[in-house]
Design a protein around this nucleic acid. Structure first.
Length: 346
DNA sequence: TACACGTGGGA
DNA sequence: TTCCCAAGTGT
């Protein structure tokens, strides 16, 4: 490795010592990291911004401060606590992993990348990040920030995701044996605040002199990404069934979209508006004017809203939830949005 | 490998 | 408004 590359770890660590972000899950210099908090934060931060995670992290650790408390939690409470954060498999896997730690590891988190990797919800990134940050293991931590920084440092022009092996190999060559956790967090802070997607602040970058993309004059062109596919449009109907000041909520199947979450009953989500298909009860439905639009990762959804009074027993299993407490039900955003419209009938 | 899987914020 | 994107994982 040439001299400009060999200086990267020291330069990055020195920059981190001066500019590290103070985050609620991050141990202060000299403190011993709390593995539970490190793990929880890493899972919450998957595809989710620091701004969105911060208040949710604080509320979560106040309620479930360690593996034992989370392992003993009611799964429905956990899912409701996760509502609005998205990617709900993360919450299901948090409970599974906490229970595995208590039942199979004697309450102690595995301390190696390989051991962590066996737990549900800990993939290549999170296992490496926890091993490095919580336990000081030298692990090669590659998230979207690191991908961007490394693609630029080494001027890797292969489009993502095909570039992943080359990026990992390059990251391997600059990962130090000591302070691997600080190095990982430093790379992420650098990617987040300096080596940004648009308009990178190269004049503030400690690695500028080692960066081939900076030398090229157009670092923002890297990394190259593959073109994305168009999102299909789907249509559906949400049903608001009332009885004595309550509304019928169902629990979605454990697998699949919004799995395990409390929800309003819906019909199918399909190419053509399905009308009142699969309504949860026979009644005189009123279809509201207007629709609710919601974008998921891989399709856009337009929902018609139907209101009705329960005159007979519903045809689906569910729970009657007080309408004036609908905010405590832990509904995913798409249903919270619809509920706000339906509650008032507008 | 490719796709399913959420959401809110910035430009 | 629309598009892009964020500390990815599981199948």
């Amino acid at each position: 490795m040439d001299a400009k590359r060999s200086s990267i770890p020291d330069r990055l660590l020195a920059w981190y010592d001066r500019h590290r972000r103070d985050l609620p899950w991050r141990a202060k210099p000299g403190e011993v990291p709390d593995a539970y908090r490190v793990w929880l934060s890493e899972v919450m931060l998957q595809q989710t911004t620091v701004a969105a995670v911060t208040p949710r992290f604080e509320a979560w650790v106040a309620r479930w401060p360690d593996f034992a408390s989370l392992a003993g939690a009611d799964e429905a409470d956990v899912m409701a606590a996760w509502a609005g954060l998205g990617y709900y498999a993360r919450a299901r896997n948090l409970v599974k992993a906490a229970r595995a730690v208590v039942a199979e590891h004697g309450g102690a988190f595995p301390r190696t990348e390989a051991g962590l990797r066996t737990l549900p919800g800990l993939g290549a990134y999170t296992a490496a990040a926890v091993a490095a940050i919580a336990f000081g293991e030298r692990a090669v931590v590659v998230d979207a920030n690191v991908e961007r920084v490394v693609a630029r440092l080494f001027a890797i022009t292969t489009p993502l995701p095909a570039a992943r092996p080359a990026i990992r190999a390059a990251a391997e060559t600059i990962t130090p044996d000591a302070r691997a956790g600080d190095f990982a967090q430093g790379m992420m802070d650098l990617g987040s605040g300096v080596c940004t997607v648009r308009a990178p602040k190269c004049l503030l970058c400690p690695l500028r002199e080692a960066c081939d993309a900076f030398a090229s004059g157009a670092p923002e062109r890297l990394p190259v990404k593959a073109a994305k596919k168009a999102k299909p449009q789907r249509h559906g109907t949400i049903f608001w069934l009332e009885r004595e000041g309550c509304v019928l909520l169902v629990r979605r199947p454990d697998r699949g979209l919004l799995g395990g979450m409390r929800a309003l009953p819906t019909g199918p989500w399909v190419e053509v508006p399905p009308g009142l298909a699969e309504a949860p009860a026979e009644t005189d439905w009123t279809v509201l004017n207007g629709t609710v639009a919601h974008g998921f990762t891989h399709f856009d959804l337009e929902l018609a809203l139907a209101r009705g009074m329960a005159e007979v027993e519903p045809s689906v299993a569910g729970e009657w939830w007080p309408i004036d407490a609908i905010g405590t039900a832990g509904l995913p955003t798409v249903f919270a949005k619809a509920a706000e419209r339906l509650r008032t009938g507008r």
